[in-house]
Structure formats: C-alpha cells, structure tokens
C-alpha cells in the first residue's frame, strides 16, 4: 500500500497553506472549537496525509493501511480538513462541524466517519489505543505503521507513562509518536501550569527512541519522519518531539494561549485569511 499523493516538499507547503485557509473558514462557520493547536499541527498533517501515510480513502478499512491515531482529540478540526482534502468526504461537509447530526463531532468519534481510527478527547487515551494497534501488527505480522499524534501537556496524564512503559516492554518499533510541542495548554504555558521538562530525557529513560524536528518546517518534517521510519526494526518505539508554534501562520494568534480553545469571529477570520493568502 502507498500514499495516494506522494507530494513533493513544494506541493506539501502549498497544501499546508490550503489546509490552513480551509481550517479558518471551517472554524469561523462552526463557530466553536480549537484554533491554535490545529494551525500549529497543519504542516505535520499535510506531510502525513500527502506523503508519508499509506492508505486509500476509497478503502478506509483496508487492514494494511497505516493507522493515524489522534490522541489530542481537541485538534480534530485539522484532521477533518485534511481528511476532506485527502478525499474521505466532500469539503462542503466541513461546514457541519459541531452541528447537530454531523459526522464531524467536536471531539473525534471512530464510529462517525470511515477513516477516523480512534475516539479521543480525554487526554492519554489515544496513546494506549495506538499501543494496542501496534501490538496487534506485531502479533499478526502486519507491515502497517501506527502514528500517534499527541500534545505536550498530555505528558501530564499518568496513563501516558503507563502506555510508554508497555510500548518499550513489547519493543513496538512500528509505533511513532509525534508530540505537538507548542509549550501551551488551556490555562497557560506548560512550565507555569505543570512543568514536564526535561521531556526528551524522561522519554529516553523510558527506553524510547527520541527524535526532534521543527514541526512547522516541511523540509525538516520530511527529513526526520522518513529517518525515524528507517529505524523500524531497532525494537524501540519512536517518539518525535515536534517543536511547533501554536497558531502558526496567523501572527496575532501565534504563541498566544488565549487561542487554544476559541475560534475567530468574522473580522478576525478575515484578517487571518488575509495573512494566509499572502
């Protein structure tokens, strides 16, 4: 199974721009949800869905597909926008986000829409599910890889560390965590709410194979992700600390935790779109 797009870096940069524009339009229509996290993770989503992941949107249950587990479920608007662009459903359906009878729930539900692998919202839960899916691949000698996107504040949940212990014990080298490391959580900066550093050292101490990348730079993402994947076989779960900027691409949102859990009003959306269309 292959990636259906296999975009070049230049095409990925253009796709990320389109996704951000669609994201702002979708959120301002909703109009509720999270803006900062989705903007910060857009480049990673573009790289995954348009180059890295092996899947077929016409055959979303194919057992050979890579699994994309979203553990920080609150950033799901960017998952929905990316899935629409990848061909899972029509773009117009994005306008139903958070509306009654919509398949696009405020936090993702695996039974709502083919292609959504897991239900999330309560932090930590996607991580354990990703571990279970990676374990199953090992049991049945499947080639699929499991990518688990998670937030940095998710490392404050005890379940996260339970899951890391397990992943290391069972040598789940087919499991790739990507941490959205924007240093912001709902109530402020992570070092103020509950410090997690030195995170990379802690992860190494849990016997994980740790990588760093700039999560808002396509070239870096497209260098580090394939590099991490080339290490499958080393019997270590992979974890990539992706430094990102919350609200990336919209200057008045960048690094401002006030934009964690709100959406732009009409004027703010227009201003944001003017930056993104430059």
């Amino acid at each position: 199974m292959n990636n259906p797009f296999n975009f070049s870096d230049q095409q990925l940069i253009q796709k990320a721009r389109e996704l951000r524009i669609e994201l702002i339009e979708t959120l301002s229509h909703a109009p509720s949800g999270h803006t900062g996290g989705p903007l910060g993770m857009t480049d990673i989503f573009a790289a995954l869905y348009f180059n890295i992941l092996r899947y077929d949107p016409q055959d979303p249950e194919n057992d050979e597909r890579d699994r994309l587990i979203l553990s920080n479920g609150h950033v799901c608007p960017i998952l929905y926008v990316t899935m629409a662009h990848a061909g899972y459903f029509p773009n117009e359906e994005l306008l139903t986000l958070r509306k009654l009878n919509s398949r696009l729930q405020g936090h993702p539900w695996n039974r709502a829409l083919p292609g959504i692998e897991n239900t999330s919202g309560p932090l930590g839960q996607g991580i354990s599910q990703a571990v279970g899916m990676a374990l199953r691949a090992k049991l049945d000698k499947k080639e699929y890889r499991v990518f688990c996107l998670m937030s940095d504040a998710e490392n404050q949940e005890g379940q996260t560390w339970e899951a890391m212990l397990f992943a290391a014990k069972y040598h789940l080298d087919n499991l790739i965590f990507i941490i959205d490391k924007n240093n912001i959580q709902i109530d402020g900066y992570i070092q103020d709410v509950m410090p997690i550093e030195p995170l990379d050292d802690k992860l190494r101490a849990f016997n994980l194979d740790v990588f760093q990348m700039n999560g808002n730079n396509i070239q870096d993402i497209m260098y580090i992700l394939p590099h991490a994947l080339s290490q499958i076989g080393n019997r270590m779960p992979k974890i990539i600390s992706a430094n990102t900027i919350l609200g990336y691409g919209v200057p008045f949102m960048e690094n401002n935790f006030a934009w964690h859990g709100v959406v732009p009003n009409h004027e703010q959306a227009a201003e944001a779109l003017s930056y993104l269309r430059q």
């Binding site: 354990s128 279970g132 899916m133």
Partner: peptide, 25 residues
C-alpha cells in the same frame, strides 16, 4: 504468546485492549 502483562496499570490496560479490539482481536 497471547497473554500480556500490563503491570499495575489498569487505565493503559483498557486502552491497549481497545486498540487490539479495533484492529480485530
């Protein structure tokens, strides 16, 4: 080969079980 000890970690046990079930076990 079909038995997994999670250690004293019931929350992870529920999540790993879910992941195994959602992929067919």
């Amino acid at each position: 080969e079909r038995y997994f000890d999670l250690g004293v970690a019931e929350q992870n046990m529920a999540g790993v079980s879910a992941g195994l079930a959602l992929s067919g076990k």
